[in-house]
């Protein structure tokens, strides 16, 4: 089910995935030979200590980083086969990304921030308006749509960021520490919202988190330590 109607979507398949970073000639392995699959409609919490490679794995699934070895297949597409341009187009269609620090554009209103990814679609202005208002309605910010980020609280900013992530009705929602910069109450609201997106709209969600409450909301917990998944 989609926030805009019925739909049947996809899985994440990761095979023998390795990722290393290089500092001069020194290879620093981050992920080692990971195998991982994610059924549609799943809500996964990816946990682990700092430096364990959680964000790197999320970036690889989002197609914003390239693996050193192995295969990442999302929504039936082998990301290694896509050029940078194709990957950008693919991300716009399939990925909704939520950042720890919200990353809203400060000179745009909540409405305009949510509309931003929709500018890449062929939707008309009135269709974009409908999508933006729906997304902001879902996150409970219909009355704040013409506020700038500086006029919103941290929790509200993160809700705008979630609205931006769901506005294009993506296949997969990826959240990198979405409650990491929030107070307890705001964090609970955000987790509740993610949980609702999963249960009510059947969105597939992967959350990178240190927060045990976030893990509790997820159906599945995955632990990543020293580049290995358990």
């Amino acid at each position: 089910m989609s926030i805009y109607g019925e739909r049947s979507r996809t899985i994440v398949e990761i095979e023998a995935l390795s990722k290393s970073y290089f500092r001069d000639s020194l290879e620093i392995p981050v992920l080692r030979n990971l195998n991982f699959s994610l059924p549609e409609g799943e809500f996964v919490a990816l946990m682990g200590p700092s430096g364990s490679g959680k964000t790197t794995l999320l970036n690889l699934i989002a197609g914003i980083d390239r693996p050193t070895k192995g295969k990442v297949k999302v929504a039936g597409t082998d990301l290694a086969q896509l050029s940078e341009g194709e990957l950008a187009k693919w991300r716009a269609r399939h990925i909704g990304f939520i950042f720890q620090f919200y990353n809203l554009i400060p000179v745009l209103t909540a409405y305009e921030n949510v509309e931003l990814p929709l500018l890449l679609t062929s939707l008309s202005k009135s269709e974009r308006k409908e999508h933006v208002e729906t997304a902001l309605g879902i996150v409970g910010l219909s009355d704040r749509m013409h506020h700038y980020p500086r006029q919103l609280s941290g929790g509200q900013e993160q809700r705008v960021a979630i609205a931006r992530a769901i506005a294009t009705d993506p296949t997969l929602i990826l959240a990198d520490e979405p409650t990491g910069d929030l107070d307890k109450k705001s964090a609970e609201e955000i987790l509740e919202l993610l949980s609702r997106l999963n249960s009510e709209f059947k969105k597939t969600i992967v959350v990178v988190t240190h927060d045990p409450r976030a893990a509790e909301k997820a159906h599945t917990k995955k632990h990543l330590d020293k580049g290995e998944l358990s």
């Binding site: 341009g85 950008a88 187009k89 991300r91 990304f97 990353n103 554009i105 890449l120």
Partner: peptide, 13 residues
Amino acid sequence: ISEYAVMKTLGFK
């Protein structure tokens, strides 16, 4: 730079 990275993440080319 970070905003440009966010825009790229959203699919901007």
